[in-house]
């Protein structure tokens, strides 16, 4: 799981062009959107696309759970791990 967390941090930085951010800067528990890392709605679209492509998982953005999955890197890692095992 901790590998996946690190992998996701790198993915977020690469996909979203966060040039001044290193993986250590991203707290696994902090909010990705709004405060915390401060990502925007376009980032959400980009990130959703990248996750679907890289892990071959489907994300239903209309589902209320999706908000929870995208809340932090930790949640995202749990979601990716569960989706892959499913």
């Amino acid at each position: 799981m901790s590998n996946l967390v690190e992998e996701l941090k790198v993915l977020i930085i690469d996909v979203l062009n966060l040039e001044d951010v290193t993986p250590e800067d991203i707290q696994a528990e902090e909010p990705l959107f709004g405060e915390g890392l401060g990502l925007d709605s376009i980032d959400a679209l980009e990130l959703g696309l990248a996750l679907q492509k890289k892990y071959n998982i489907s994300i239903d953005a209309e589902n209320e759970n999706t908000k929870t999955h995208f809340a932090s890197v930790n949640n995202l890692a749990k979601f990716v791990a569960e989706s892959q095992n499913a």
Binding site: L18, E19, D25, E35, G38, L39, D40
Partner: peptide, 19 residues
């Protein structure tokens, strides 16, 4: 990070400088 948070209450996400 501080500067982005300084701007966040007044601007939508896409208007926050990224670089």
């Amino acid at each position: 990070r501080d500067l982005r948070q300084w701007l966040a209450p007044d601007l939508e996400g896409v208007a926050l400088p990224r670089s």
